Amino acid sequence: MYEGNKDYEKFLRDRITKLRIEKNLSERQLSFELWHCEGYINKITSGYTLPSIKEFVYICEYFGLTPKEFFDEEMEYPILMQKAIKELNGLDESSILLIIGFINKLKNK
């Protein structure tokens, strides 16, 4: 195994932890939500094991993310971003442009 895999494994563990905390779930609760034994998520986040591709897709679906969004390092709060995008979908163009202007002002502070 080449060393680059270690970075992705750590990112996967850290991202699951961050998403779990963002949803205010314990490792045990998330394990049960994914229909696994209570230590399933702990085994992943502690580096003992990795989820299969199928299980990884289930984890993404649980958090409402695509695999691409899951691995997007620039998206710091993916669950909140998905929620914001869903809210924007119901707005007209002028409202969206107004919000974008507001976001730009916030970023320039």
Rank of each mutant, 00 (worst) to 15 (best):
L12H: 06
K54Q: 14
R20I: 02
N24W: 09
I53V: 13
N108C: 06
F71L: 03
E9D: 07
Y48V: 11
K107F: 07
I79H: 02
N5K: 12
Q29G: 01
L106H: 01
I21V: 15
I59N: 06
S94F: 12
K23A: 14
R28I: 10
I103Q: 10
Y48F: 09
D72H: 05
L19G: 05
I41V: 14
S26W: 09
Y77M: 04
F32V: 11
D14R: 09
L80I: 05
P51V: 11
L12T: 15
L50G: 02
T17D: 12
K10D: 09
Y48S: 11
L106Y: 06
Q29Y: 12
W35Y: 15
M81I: 07
Y2D: 15
F11A: 09
L65F: 03
I85D: 00
E61M: 02
S94P: 04
I44H: 10
E55I: 01
G101I: 01
E93G: 04
Q29H: 10
L88P: 04
S46L: 10
I59R: 07
Y77P: 00
I85M: 07
K43R: 13
L65V: 12
K105D: 14
L91M: 13
I59P: 00
E61H: 06
C37T: 11
E76L: 08
K54C: 08
Y8W: 14
E76A: 00
M81V: 13
E22G: 08
E93T: 05
R28V: 12
D7E: 14
C60P: 04
E73D: 04
F70N: 01
T66W: 07
K107A: 09
E22K: 15
D92F: 03
K86C: 02
Q29D: 14
R20S: 05
N89E: 08
F56H: 06
R20V: 02
K105M: 05
I79P: 05
L97G: 01
I44V: 13
S46D: 13
I41Q: 11
K68Y: 05
V57K: 07
N108T: 09
F70E: 00
E38I: 02
L19H: 04
K107L: 11
G39P: 02
L98H: 09
L34Q: 05
F32Y: 14
I16T: 04
E22Y: 11
S46W: 08
A84D: 03
E93S: 07
Q82G: 02
E22V: 11
K10Q: 15
T17G: 10
D7N: 10
Y77S: 06
E27A: 15
T45A: 03
I59S: 05
F32H: 12
L19A: 12
N89D: 09
Y62G: 04
C37K: 13
W35S: 14
E76W: 02
W35G: 11
E73A: 11
G90T: 10
K18I: 09
E93Q: 10
N42D: 13
K83L: 06
Y8S: 08
S46N: 14
K18Q: 10
G101R: 08
L80H: 13
K23M: 15
L65R: 00
L88M: 15
P78D: 00
D72Q: 04
Y48A: 14
P78W: 01
R20E: 08
L97P: 00
Y2P: 08
E22L: 13
S46M: 07
S46T: 15
